[in-house]
């Protein structure tokens, strides 16, 4: 507890420290075809993403399916090899490390997956699944491991009797708690939540989000919170990154982004949030057309094919990533212009 308290005070006293930094991260998946499996092109899943993540903050990443949110998360963890770009974690370059050197960082960076059932080995008791984390990274004895796992279970709101159960014997919310327990077992400083609550009921979502918040305060965790649910992001995150077709579109604090969206895509996304008010006077921005093929992205601004205010410059030139107001970045030639 003493360590935690110390961390919190130091956090209050100093400027937020950069924990994770991405510089020009690109991830292309080659398309292979023909008899010889020659490369015929690339699916541009993540296109030139640069951002900073501070200690103890939650950064939401939102966008439609297929916009590269999950790939970005996996690329950060090194589960996908980067095509280009650099990832710095605590000021150290980590993208090209060998497995052994990487283990140090693996302890610090963890991931919570979307489908808690699919992310647990169906033939492994969850107690053993959690013990395995300690087996891989610590020298604890069998007894110590067991007690560490029991502590973990308690921490995420499960009981000792759950130790010997298989994943299919749990409810969805409980399984996600196990996923969380596994991710925080080694006390990481950074956790990627890849649609961590999307598969859960709304009531269970709230509980799990609450748990994530509690853990964040306790361990000074930073979250990269990948989601397509803007309501959840609004509640949970400090800053939000909007992605479209592998590109970063807008980055701002939650308040700023929801109150003053700069990019037409963000505005369209926000207008799609269902609101619990009857007869509310609001305009719904409907985007026309489908998401373009990421293997053959549009010229210029990737959003111009669906953007209601696109002009010739959007088709010709890719907009720059500009800080329009403090900590509010957007990539649009007409940032801030209202949609008509």
């Amino acid at each position: 507890m003493a360590v935690v308290a110390e961390k919190q005070t130091s956090k209050e006293l100093t400027e937020p420290k950069v924990l994770l930094e991405l510089k020009g991260v690109k991830k292309y998946f080659p398309i292979k075809g023909g008899i010889l499996q020659r490369k015929q092109g690339d699916v541009k899943a993540v296109e030139n993403v640069s951002l900073q993540l501070f200690e103890g903050e939650s950064l939401g990443v939102v966008g439609e399916s297929g916009c590269g949110k999950s790939t970005l998360g996996r690329a950060i963890l090194g589960l996908e090899e980067l095509t280009e770009g650099k990832v710095y974690f605590q000021d150290a370059e980590i993208q090209d490390l060998k497995r052994k050197e990487k283990l140090k960082f693996v302890k610090q960076m963890q991931m919570i997956f979307q489908d808690p059932f699919a992310s647990l080995n169906p033939r492994q008791r969850i107690g053993h699944a959690l013990e395995e984390v300690f087996t891989m990274h610590t020298d604890l004895s069998a007894k110590e491991k067991r007690s560490a796992v029991l502590d973990l279970l308690e921490e995420v709101g499960l009981k000792e009797e759950h130790f010997d159960k298989y994943p299919h014997e749990f409810s969805g919310g409980q399984r996600q708690r196990i996923g969380i327990a596994r991710a925080i077992a080694l006390h990481p400083s950074f956790v990627i939540c890849d649609e961590a609550v999307s598969a859960l009921d709304v009531s269970v979502q709230a509980q799990v989000l609450k748990l994530l918040k509690t853990l964040q305060q306790k361990y000074n965790l930073s979250y990269l919170f990948i989601s397509h649910d803007l309501g959840v992001v609004r509640y949970f995150c400090d800053r939000v990154l909007v992605m479209y077709l592998g590109n970063t579109v807008e980055l701002a604090t939650v308040k700023d982004l929801f109150e003053n969206p700069m990019h037409p895509y963000t505005q369209a996304l926000l207008s799609a949030i269902p609101r619990p008010t009857v007869n509310a006077n609001r305009k719904r921005i409907r985007l026309q057309g489908d998401l373009p093929n990421p293997a053959n992205p549009p010229s210029g601004c990737p959003f111009h094919t669906r953007c209601p205010i696109a002009t010739d410059i959007c088709r010709a030139e890719k907009p720059a990533w500009v800080e329009y107001s403090p900590k509010h970045y957007a990539a649009c030639h007409f940032a801030g212009q209202p949609l008509t």
């Binding site: 589960l79 647990l120 080995n121």
Partner: peptide, 19 residues
């Protein structure tokens, strides 16, 4: 996904294959 999860936890290939 549980294989991906084990990779993200830093499990070795041998551990993933055998366990």
């Amino acid at each position: 996904e549980y294989i991906m999860a084990m990779k993200s936890l830093g499990a070795s290939d041998l551990r993933i294959m055998v366990k």
